[in-house]
Lab assay of single mutants.
Amino acid sequence: MQIFVKTLTGKTITLEVEPSDTIENVKAKIQDKEGIPPDQQRLIFAGKQLEDGRTLSDYNIQKDSTLHLVLR
């Protein structure tokens, strides 16, 4: 499925993911596309910070959802 990741600069990254993918996995995909190390990434969805060990389906993230990427 496709999800979107919006950065603070207003750029939107499109990712191909599975509901069973972990947040860690998603961060690795963002690193592949953007070169941002996962340890600098914070992903936010519906006002919640997403934890590495959980999956997209744990957070009820569905296709065409938009996550927000904050760098630390």
Rank of each mutant, 00 (worst) to 15 (best):
Q41H: 04
D32I: 10
Q62E: 14
T66Q: 13
Y59L: 06
Q40F: 05
L56Q: 00
P38I: 13
K6R: 07
K6D: 13
D39W: 06
R72I: 10
I61D: 00
P19D: 06
V26I: 15
I36L: 10
P38S: 08
Q2D: 13
Q49P: 11
L15F: 03
T66L: 03
D52V: 06
G35T: 04
R54T: 13
I13R: 02
Q49I: 11
R42N: 12
T12G: 07
N60K: 05
G10Y: 04
L71G: 12
T9E: 12
H68M: 02
Q62I: 14
V70S: 07
P37R: 06
K6E: 07
D39T: 14
I44Y: 13
D58F: 03
K63M: 15
G35M: 08
G10W: 09
D32Y: 06
L43K: 00
A46K: 14
L43W: 01
K63A: 13
T55A: 13
I23A: 10
D21R: 05
D52E: 06
Q2S: 15
G47I: 02
P19T: 08
D58H: 14
Q2W: 06
L8Q: 04
L50F: 02
T14W: 12
K63W: 09
T22M: 03
I23N: 02
K63L: 04
L69H: 01
K11W: 12
S57L: 12
L69Y: 02
E16M: 10
K63S: 15
V5F: 04
D39L: 13
T55N: 10
N25P: 02
L56H: 00
V5N: 00
F4G: 07
K29T: 07
K63N: 11
T22E: 10
K6Q: 14
L56I: 14
I44S: 08
K6N: 13
Q62H: 15
I3Q: 00
L8R: 10
G10S: 07
G10P: 07
E24Q: 13
Q2Y: 10
L43G: 00
A28V: 12
L71T: 10
S20M: 11
Q41W: 05
L8H: 05
H68N: 06
I61A: 02
A28L: 14
I30V: 04
S20D: 10
Q2E: 14
L50S: 01
G53I: 07
S20P: 15
D58W: 09
K6G: 10
L71V: 06
V5Q: 00
S57E: 12
G35S: 08
E18R: 13
E51N: 04
Y59T: 02
P37N: 15
L71A: 09
A28G: 13
E16Y: 15
L71R: 06
R54L: 09
A46F: 08
K6I: 05
I30D: 00
K27W: 06
V17F: 10
V5L: 12
Q31M: 04
K11V: 11
R42M: 15
E24I: 05
V5S: 01
V26W: 01
I30Q: 00
I30E: 00
R42H: 15
E34D: 11
P37M: 15
G35A: 05
I44K: 09
Q40V: 10
Q62N: 14
L69I: 04
T7K: 10
L50G: 01
T7S: 12
K29Y: 11
T9P: 09
K29M: 12
E18T: 12
R72N: 12
D64W: 04
E18W: 05
R72V: 15
M1S: 10
P37Q: 15
K11P: 11
S65H: 08
E16G: 04
D64S: 04
L71P: 09
Q31L: 07
Q2P: 04
F45G: 03
K33V: 04
G47Q: 08
P38G: 11
T22D: 07
A46S: 04
V26L: 14
E34G: 07
M1H: 15
R42V: 08
N25M: 12
T7H: 03
M1K: 02
A46N: 09
T55D: 09
Q49M: 13
T22W: 12
I61N: 00
D64K: 03
K33T: 11
V17D: 01
A28D: 06
E34S: 08
L67W: 01
D39H: 13
Q2H: 14
L69P: 00
E18F: 12
I36T: 13
G47M: 11
K27Q: 03
E24Y: 15
G53T: 11
P37I: 06
D21S: 03
K27P: 00
S57K: 07
K27L: 11
Q62F: 15
F4L: 08
T7Q: 13
L69K: 00
K48A: 09
T66E: 08
K63T: 12
A28Y: 09
L43F: 09
T14E: 11
T7D: 09
L67N: 01
E24A: 03
A46V: 14
G10M: 11
L67Q: 01
E24V: 07
K6T: 14
V70L: 04
P38M: 15
D64M: 04
K11N: 05
M1E: 07
G47A: 07
I44D: 10
I13G: 02
L67G: 01
K29I: 03
T55K: 07
L8I: 07
K11H: 12
P19I: 08
A28Q: 03
I13P: 00
T14Q: 12
T22H: 09
L15D: 00
F4V: 10
E16D: 14
I61G: 00
D21K: 11
T66I: 04
E16F: 11
K27R: 09
L71H: 12
Q62A: 05
E51Q: 05
R42K: 13
D39K: 07
Q49T: 07
I30T: 02
K6W: 10
S65P: 01
A28F: 06
D58N: 05
I44W: 14
H68T: 03
L71S: 11
K48I: 15
I13Y: 15
E34H: 05
T14H: 13
I3N: 00
V26H: 00
M1R: 04
A46Y: 12
G35P: 03
I13D: 02
F45P: 00
E24W: 11
L71W: 08
I23E: 01
E24T: 13
P37T: 14
S20N: 10
V26P: 00
N60H: 11
E34F: 08
I44A: 04
S20G: 14
E51L: 03
L50A: 02
V5D: 00
K6A: 12
I30K: 00
I13L: 03
Q62L: 08
E51M: 03
R54N: 12
K27T: 02
P19L: 09
Q40R: 04
D52A: 07
M1I: 05
L15S: 01
T55F: 10
K63R: 10
S65A: 08
I23Q: 03
E24R: 15
Q49H: 04
V17P: 02
D32S: 08
L71Q: 14
R72Y: 11
D32K: 11
D52S: 08
L43Y: 07
L8T: 11
Q40W: 05
I61R: 00
K6F: 14
E18I: 12
P19S: 12
R42A: 06
N25F: 09
F4Q: 11
I30W: 01
P19V: 04
K33E: 12
V26S: 02
